[in-house]
């Protein structure tokens, strides 16, 4: 042994041991256990939720996603950093908002990115969409607001018949053509691609799904999550689809979201994040934290662990 271990284990009786044999036996047993678990229980793989399905089976919810964006009341509207510069909703504690430090690193303009840009691509192959888009862009902001308000209200009372959205006649300007264009784009399966495309010379390869994910993160995703018991009040991301244990090691994290004062706080995410960082620091420095580092001595579990030693 080294000088250090020679000194530490002086006068301690030793027994024969085989590290490699023990390691191989444990690895073998653990491997068999995992293989058996995988054979019996398999693993979850719930398919993705795509715009095509939403546009086909929930066309009104699909269109409401876009009208909410035009109304400025979607989850991404005025989100703040890192997506835009509007900081009034940014979470802060004691006047400090960490999100502001790096600012807008992933710029998102909800109306342009989720409505105008995909329609601009569709307009290349559909001149009606081009005409409507021009009409929308050239209208005054007041006029646009009237159309959007009227269409949005009408959509609340709309019916879907054979996948087609029927709304009562009204003053909607170019919105019916635009919305129908977005609906067709969704049904064709091309919406996600249209959202991802940008003018970068390297855009042929795109592994960034920020925009397609942000678009339906609100009511649509929540509705799917609710049906699968994956909402925040159901311990959120610590859960998993199906009857699987999920990421149970996140239970302490999910737990704090169950406390009413945190779950309703506008700064809840920041509060829980800081609590978790604090708990980690407690664990990290536990050997030198008074009282906590004496708990093992008090609870005496060590007497069970080393019971053979104490019997000597």
């Amino acid at each position: 042994m080294s000088r250090k271990t020679d000194e530490y284990f002086k006068n301690v009786p030793m027994k024969s041991y085989d590290l490699i044999k023990e390691g191989l036996i444990v690895f073998g047993v653990v491997s068999v256990l995992i293989i058996v678990l995988a054979i019996i229980f398999s693993s979850p793989d719930y398919p993705t939720v795509r715009a095509k399905q939403i546009a086909t089976y929930e066309p009104i919810s699909y269109l409401q996603t876009f009208t909410d964006i035009l109304l400025g009341k979607s989850e991404i509207s005025n989100y703040g950093p890192p997506y835009d510069n509007d900081v009034k909703n940014t979470q802060s504690l004691f006047g400090i908002a960490p999100a502001k430090i790096l600012g807008t690193t992933i710029p998102i303009n909800a109306v342009n990115d989720f409505v105008i840009d995909p329609l601009t691509r569709l307009a290349v192959i559909d001149k009606n969409v081009q005409t409507s888009l021009d009409q929308f862009k050239n209208a005054s902001s007041q006029q646009r607001q009237v159309w959007i308000d009227n269409y949005s209200k009408a959509l609340d009372n709309a019916t879907a018949v054979n996948g087609k959205v029927q709304i009562v006649n009204g003053d909607y300007g170019p919105l019916p053509v635009m919305m129908n264009g977005l609906l067709l784009l969704g049904r064709s399966g091309l919406l996600e691609g249209a959202l991802q495309k940008n003018e970068s010379p390297y855009d042929f390869y795109n592994l960034n799904y920020t925009k397609p994910l942000l678009l339906f993160q609100g009511k649509v995703y929540h509705s799917v999550a609710k049906s699968l018991n994956m909402l925040g009040e159901d311990w959120g991301i610590a859960n998993e689809t199906g009857n699987y244990p999920g990421a149970w090691w996140l239970w302490p994290y999910a737990f704090f979201y169950q406390i009413p004062s945190v779950s309703t706080s506008p700064n809840g995410d920041l509060e829980v994040g800081l609590i978790m960082i604090g708990l980690f620091l407690v664990l990290l420095f536990l050997p030198v934290i008074p009282i906590l580092n004496k708990i093992p001595k008090w609870v005496k579990v060590y007497r069970i662990i080393w019971r053979d030693w104490y019997k000597r």
Partner: peptide
């Protein structure tokens, strides 16, 4: 995002 990590970890 709330913790300021979202600016570089998306």
């Amino acid at each position: 995002n709330a913790l300021g990590i979202g600016g570089f970890f998306n």
